[in-house]
C-alpha cells in the first residue's frame, strides 16, 4: 500500500540473549494508531527503531519510505515523546523548548515564539518560567509532548504519554492527540491499557512478547478478546445450588464452587454473561454480594491469543 507511512516487516531485535521484538510486522498509515501491549512487550523498542535510536537485528523498516538508522534528515519530520525523561532539570520549561527547537535547526526568535505557542497548547503557559525539577509527572509528560511538536513534525511517536499523569493531564493529553490528528498528521501512541487507547483511536496494533498479535479496529480486537474464556468470581448465598442452576445455561462453560458462598464462573461469552446473569438472579431469587472479573488484565488475554496463533501455525486444533 502506498498509504503506509511506517512499514515494519519481520522486524527482530535482540539485546544480547533477550529478544525484544520477534518478527514484528505492522503497517501504519495516517491518523492515530495505538500500539497496545503489557510492559516488556517491545513497544518502546519498536519506537526506538522508528526514531533511529536503535538498529534492528533483522527485518526491514521504512518510515516515509526511508531507513531510519543513521538518517538525520528523516528526524526533521519525526517528533518523539520518549518513555523516560529527557530534561535538563535546571532549565525552565520554556528554555528547554527553545533549546529543543534550536537543535532542530530553528532560529532563536522563531524558537521563542513557537515555544510560547506550544506551552499554551499543552496547558503549561503559567509554568513555562518555572524550573523543570519542580514539575509534576503530568507536567513533565506535557512538556515532552510540546518538545516533540515544536518543529511541526509530520509523524509523532508517543511512548506511553499518559503514564503517571494525573486525570487533568490525561484529559489534556487526549485533547492534544485529537488536535494533532485533526491537523492531518500521523500519530503512533503506545500504552499498556487498552481502554486508554480506545478513547483516542479505533485503530490498534496488539503487541505481546515482541509479536504483533493482531492489528485492526478496536471492536474486532474486543471481539477476539471476548472469545477468551473469561473467569468471573461471584459471591452469593447458597453457592452450591446456584452452581447447579448455572451449569444449564448456554452462556456458561464451567462452574466451580470455591466456598459455601463463592463461585468461579467460566464463560467464553462475557457479554452474554453480564446481560443475562442479573435476570437469572431475579428468576432464581439469588442474592448476589459481588461480581468480579478475574481476567481483566491484558496479559492473560495475550497469552491466550498467542497460544491460539502458535497452535494455528503448528497445524494444531483451531477453535
Amino acid at each position: 500500500m502506498t498509504d503506509d507511512i511506517i512499514l515494519a516487516n519481520d522486524l527482530s531485535k535482540w539485546y544480547g540473549e533477550i529478544i525484544a521484538l520477534n518478527r514484528f510486522s505492522a503497517s501504519i498509515g495516517k491518523g492515530v494508531t495505538g500500539v497496545v501491549g503489557p510492559n516488556g512487550s517491545g513497544k518502546s523498542t519498536f519506537f526506538k527503531i522508528i526514531m533511529g535510536l536503535v538498529r534492528q537485528s533483522s527485518g526491514t523498516i521504512r518510515v516515509a519510505g526511508e531507513k531510519p538508522w543513521n538518517n538525520p534528515k528523516l528526524r526533521k519530520i519525526l517528533g518523539y515523546v520518549p518513555e523516560r525523561d529527557i530534561f535538563f532539570p535546571w532549565m525552565t520549561g520554556e528554555e528547554f523548548l527553545v533549546k529543543s527547537a534550536r537543535l532542530s535547526g530553528m532560529q532563536t526568535n522563531d524558537a521563542k515564539k513557537k515555544a510560547k505557542e506550544l506551552l499554551e497548547i499543552v496547558g503549561l503557559a503559567e509554568d513555562g518560567g518555572r524550573r523543570i525539577y519542580g514539575y509534576s509527572r503530568g507536567m513533565k509528560q506535557r512538556l515532552k509532548i510540546a518538545q516533540a511538536l515544536i518543529h511541526e513534525p509530520e509523524i509523532v511517536i508517543m511512548d506511553e504519554p499518559m503514564s503517571g499523569a494525573d486525570p487533568v493531564a490525561r484529559r489534556k493529553i487526549m485533547d492534544i492527540v485529537h488536535q494533532i490528528d485533526a491537523s492531518g498528521r500521523c500519530v503512533v501512541i503506545s500504552s499498556h491499557i487498552l481502554y486508554e487507547i480506545e478513547r483516542m483511536t479505533k485503530n490498534v496494533i496488539l503487541i505481546y512478547r515482541g509479536w504483533a498479535v493482531a492489528q485492526g479496529r478496536v471492536e474486532d480486537i474486543r471481539a477476539l478478546m471476548n472469545m477468551y474464556p473469561h473467569r468471573i468470581r461471584v459471591v452469593c448465598s447458597n453457592a452450591r445450588d446456584v452452581a447447579k442452576e448455572l451449569i444449564g445455561m448456554n452462556w456458561v462453560k464451567r462452574v466451580g464452587v470455591e466456598r459455601d458462598n463463592e463461585l468461579i464462573v467460566e464463560t467464553s461469552m462475557p457479554n452474554e454473561f453480564y446481560t443475562n446473569f442479573p435476570k437469572f438472579c431475579v428468576e432464581c431469587g439469588v442474592h448476589v454480594d459481588e461480581i468480579r472479573s478475574l481476567d481483566d488484565n491484558l496479559e492473560a488475554v495475550f497469552n491466550y491469543l498467542i497460544s491460539r496463533r502458535l497452535n494455528y501455525a503448528a497445524g494444531g486444533e483451531r477453535e
Partner: peptide
C-alpha cells in the same frame, strides 16, 4: 535522546 531524536 533529545539530541539524537533530532536531525543530529
Amino acid at each position: 535522546i533529545l539530541y539524537l531524536s533530532r536531525p543530529i
